[in-house]
């Protein structure tokens, strides 16, 4: 379902060119839960950004669900992100002026889902992340674990094909991290989503179908 072939990515720093990814090839099947691990600066996030269509690449090809998405313009990439890709960020990145419900609802609004359907899906996913009673609260009143559950709900509510999670447990204590990992796995199965997770958390990798290691921009 995700097919990366010979992906290369370089950054310009002053007058010099710094390679971020070199010849990265990766195939991730449907509904898989794949972890990319490696030290900081190894290129994990860059690879996930490319897979999530929020960054481009210089070499190689990327096929998502069979479509060559590397050649798409920004408007088309926006549409694919809107419909098919969910994101879970390390710092949750919830919108502080929106309630929990409104944060989760936001991707459905962008996708033009009807009011009734939005209501139904948001209620369902909030129940699944056990936050129905917090639906009207603002994110800053929630704990870190609760916020990350809201972020997971927001990522999954539109039933995406792919969820990109960049260090989702980095800011959480062990018990909360375990809960979040279990939740992602469970909901990933229920929603039929493929998870691509950047992590250097062993608690996470233990639950993954496939674990790949990045080092110096090269996927081992």
């Amino acid at each position: 379902m995700i097919e990366l072939r010979g992906i290369g990515k370089r950054y310009r720093v002053g007058d010099s060119i710094v390679p971020a990814l070199s010849e990265v090839s990766l195939t991730v099947p449907h509904r898989a839960f794949v972890a990319i691990r490696g030290p900081s600066g190894s290129g994990k996030s860059t690879l996930l950004n490319i897979c999530g269509l929020i960054d481009g690449f210089d070499d190689g090809s990327y096929r998502l669900e069979g479509e060559n998405v590397g050649a798409l313009n920004e408007a088309s990439r926006t549409l694919i992100r809107r419909r098919h890709i969910g994101f879970v960020f390390q710092s949750y990145n919830l919108v502080p002026v929106m309630s929990v419900r409104e944060n989760v609802e936001y991707p459905l609004r962008l996708a033009g889902v009807s009011d009734n359907e939005r209501q139904r899906r948001v209620d369902a996913v909030l129940a699944q992340v056990d936050l129905s009673d917090q639906a009207e609260r603002r994110p800053d009143l929630l704990s870190g674990g609760q916020r990350q559950r809201v972020a997971i709900a927001r990522a999954l509510v539109k039933k995406p094909a792919l969820v990109i999670a960049d260090e989702p447990t980095a800011n959480l204590d062990t018990a909360t991290a375990n809960r979040v990992i279990e939740l992602m796995r469970e909901l990933g199965r229920q929603y039929g989503a493929t998870f691509l997770v950047a992590t250097h958390d062993d608690r996470m990798t233990a639950h993954c179908d496939q674990v790949r290691t990045m080092r110096d921009g090269v996927l081992q």
Binding site: G52, I54, A75, T78, L79, R81, R82, R83, I85, F87, F89, N93, V95, Y106, P107, L110, A111, R154
Partner: peptide, 16 residues
């Protein structure tokens, strides 16, 4: 700015 990046990642167009 970060929030703008988040919303763009979620599928909001620049016009949104």
């Amino acid at each position: 700015t970060r929030e703008i990046g988040t919303l763009r990642a979620l599928g909001a167009a620049p016009a949104d």
